[in-house]
Design a binder for these strands. Structure first.
Lengths: 195, 195
DNA sequence: GTCTATAATTAGATAGAC
DNA sequence: GTCTATCTAATTATAGAC
């Protein structure tokens, strides 16, 4: 027998997973709440019961993505406590590449919102990007002036091939989402930026 | 006195420029033809007169971006006829970074369509991406297996900081679109990938 | 907690006046 | 070549039954 609270969480989870997919696929404006409801297998009216409106649902979806990333990066960092900083940054970078492969929605959300000012962009930066950014450069010995270039070079280099995987397949007949391709990319990017 | 043909081209140009902005801002589904018409300063009915439908308007916008990129890369290549291949690739790469800065819409279009299969993605790959890709690797001595990784690492590394410039400003208080920042990025990315 | 029904807005596309 | 008016369909959000 399920409790009311369990049922609640299960349904919220279904909706959030669907929202992550649809928002990352179509962007905030292009995504329709009906699509999200259909993909979650629930009625559209349920979305406004569990989440006040489209905006709050979007934030729940963004939380789901970015909290997962931050948790994985923190876990890797903690597991390497005491190691050399250089080794820690390299391993965190590889963790990031693997996450970008497992969750291409991360980069899609970032590009979708990062391109124009607005409340969602500000929320995303202040809530999730700032902590991620500070965490990373705590271990990476990069001079202040170059940090923006390094940060976004890493973000783009790590993520793009996975974010546009369908395109990559058609353009080169290469599937970047195989285990081997992911490890190749993690090695390539890490050696490039942190030799 | 303007001829009919001139008037035609002027209006089409206005509409296409507006379409490039709105499509890159909101994606295909999020963009509304009304927004595009308003931004172009013309009536909505004109869009279907000059372009059959939303799809054809999107292709005209994509053409406007990618033909410009290909023209600039070809011009740079021709200007360096006879130089060492390594020097040519490095210069083409810098040209690409500068274009990504001047026209962040390029990367936004690529990510927006590259993330899911569909007619627009296929058209974009076959019409514009394949030629660009082949042109680049004609001069870059990269082994076959690594090409997808190099290509998308370059694309992402070169473009992301400009594609999400508003986010970059809020996250680090750094404006990546100044002349100096663009040249710094061009140098950084080129030295990284083609040392 | 979940669903149906519906209100108010906005979408892409068309027809026809000028 | 450009605009106004309008059709049909889809959108978000709400009200209320179960």
């Amino acid at each position: 027998m399920k409790t009311r609270a369990q049922q609640r969480e299960e349904t919220r989870h279904l909706i959030i997973e669907a929202a992550v997919q649809v928002f990352s696929d179509r962007g905030f404006h292009g995504a329709s709440t009906r699509d999200i409801a259909t993909r979650a297998g629930v009625n559209q009216g349920l979305l406004t019961y569990h989440f006040k409106n489209k905006d709050e649902l979007w934030r729940a979806a963004a939380d789901r993505i970015f909290l997962e990333l931050r948790a994985q990066m923190a876990a890797r960092r903690d597991a390497l406590q005491g190691e050399a900083p250089r080794h820690i940054v390299r391993e965190i970078t590889k963790t990031y590449v693997r996450f970008a492969a497992a969750c291409p929605e991360l980069f899609r959300f970032m590009v979708e919102e990062g391109k124009h000012p607005g409340p969602r962009m500000r929320w995303l930066v202040d809530t999730h990007l700032k902590p991620t950014y500070e965490e990373f450069f705590q271990y990476a010995p990069i001079e202040e002036n170059l940090r923006p270039h390094v940060f976004y070079t890493l973000a783009g280099a790590a993520s793009t091939i996975f974010a546009v995987a369908p395109e990559c397949k058609r353009l080169m007949g290469y599937n970047p989402t195989t285990k081997q391709a992911i490890e190749t990319h993690a090695e390539y990017v890490t050696n490039l930026l942190l030799p």
